[in-house]
Nucleic acid binder design. Structure first.
Lengths: 114, 114
DNA sequence: TATTAACTTAGCCATTTGGCTAAGTATTAT
DNA sequence: ATAATACTTAGCCAAATGGCTAAGTTAATA
């Protein structure tokens, strides 16, 4: 079971190791996109795009839903939490007070004070 | 230049995509280790361990220093900051108040209040 | 109904990965 | 001086990756 989670983490990190895939995920933050939308800007072939999507789907980072002839792609960010959890062990090494995380943390703690 | 950073991020994510390598890094948090120390517990061959180390070295995650015949391996966590930065875009999706990050954040803000 | 559009699947190819063994290269110990 | 230790490099292998084209499949349009 923890084995499955480990393996999931492998897949997630691997999915993130390709710049095209990271960029695709970035684009999906704002809204769901069709496969055609996603492929816009790359001059890769359809099947190549499709393979990238499959890699991310295996990692659980996206979900595809077919509506008519259009396949809609939705970001599923949950697996990224696993990455975040793994990262926490290392946070003490970052100069966290300078990191971009900092402003976020401030926001959080302000919210808590309410 | 930003291109180089992108590429570095590819290497970092890739390095993290193998459980053995993640575990090696975890072990390096507490102290520097010799290659022999690191290989303890795996039944992989020397060259296999060596290759894993090379992958992490390429990603900038470790540094090897030879002292006598012993090669000491040191964690270089800086590249992980790149991962953290990339992740911040997605933090809004995690239920951050429940995450293990939370306790860390509290510690930080307490420190700030002093 | 025939064509076009939006995809995926099948299958090819070169390269990389992750494992191995065998053979180096230093350095330390006997 | 020899042997053992701590590695790495060279080179092999099977499997996976990332790219392609060609050929599906399914749904919308003309």
């Amino acid at each position: 079971m923890a084995k499955l989670i480990e393996n999931q983490l492998d897949n997630v990190f691997f999915a993130l190791s390709h710049p095209t895939r990271r960029q695709m995920l970035d684009r999906l933050i704002d809204s769901d996109l069709s496969v055609t939308d996603i492929s816009r800007g790359y001059n890769s072939s359809g099947p190549t795009i499709s393979k990238h999507l499959r890699v991310m789907e295996s990692a659980g980072l996206i979900q595809r839903t077919k509506r008519g002839r259009v396949h809609w792609v939705q970001l599923k960010p949950e697996p990224l939490k696993g990455v975040g959890d793994w990262m926490t062990q290392y946070k003490k090494f970052w100069d966290i007070s300078l990191s971009s995380l900092d402003s976020y943390l401030n926001k959080i703690s302000r919210k808590k004070e309410k």
